[in-house]
């Protein structure tokens, strides 16, 4: 549940669900997000769910903090169903040309690459949020023995399609972008499709993702 609502400046609401990052808290955030999105409330400009916060920005010409706060407090989110989640399979090729940081992972985690891939592929991931760059999904949680920090010096260019690991999360670079996540492979699948007006994201908050290992040949033939 929301622990505290405060104002973020004069045109946004900051809904705080606590400091922890876990699926239960994030599911609450997503419930509120879905409920408010469906209601399509006049004056709300953006809803931004993240691990444990929901930011609601609004048009100060149409409404204000007090009004939106009241709406959120009276929102009955329990009617929102969370079990109709989509399961999405993402093919990943882990050839050396794509697995830019596999040696770093082997050293830092003290695990052989076979074990790293076994751990990575044999589980379901929960999509906590999408953003930073368009469509980028933040997926969790990695097992404790798979967690490590960002690169000391971020890359200027991470290739599009790269699968990165940091802390308890995996993500997918939807565009070529600067970034500091540890890259273990690359997917040929289009995660963000800007030609789709309705739903350009393949993966949305609340969805379940699992990764499937593919060969270089399968990778190259994927979009034929």
């Amino acid at each position: 549940m929301i622990k505290n609502i405060s104002n973020l400046g004069d045109a946004a609401l900051y809904c705080d669900f606590g400091d922890e990052v876990n699926k239960d808290i994030n599911s609450q955030v997503i419930k509120y997000f879905r409920s408010l999105k469906e209601k399509n409330i006049e004056g709300i400009i953006n809803l931004t769910p993240s691990y444990n916060k929901l930011i609601i920005s609004f048009d100060l010409n149409k409404t204000n903090f007090k009004e939106i706060k009241k709406l959120v407090e009276n929102d009955n989110v329990n009617e929102i169903e969370m079990n109709s989640v989509k399961i999405i399979e993402i093919p990943v090729c882990c050839e050396d040309t794509f697995a830019l940081d596999i040696e770093r992972l082997e050293t830092k985690l003290s695990l052989k690459r076979e074990k790293i891939y076994e751990n990575f592929f044999n589980k379901d991931y929960f999509c906590y949020m999408t953003g930073f760059i368009a469509g980028m999904p933040f997926l969790g949680d990695l097992e404790k023995n798979m967690r490590l920090n960002r690169l000391e010096t971020p890359r200027v260019k991470v290739p599009k399609g790269s699968i990165g690991l940091t802390e308890q999360f995996a993500n997918i670079y939807t565009f070529e972008s600067p970034g500091g996540w540890n890259i273990i492979g690359n997917t040929p699948i289009k995660i963000f499709d800007s030609s789709k007006e309705e739903n350009p994201n393949l993966i949305n908050p609340g969805d379940t993702v699992n990764f499937k290992k593919i060969s270089l040949k399968e990778y190259n033939n994927f979009n034929d």
Binding site: I44, M129, A134, P200
Partner: peptide, 11 residues
């Protein structure tokens, strides 16, 4: 652009 922050598209 409005109502797109949740998919990562800026204003």
């Amino acid at each position: 652009r409005k109502k797109l922050f949740h998919i990562g598209i800026p204003l």
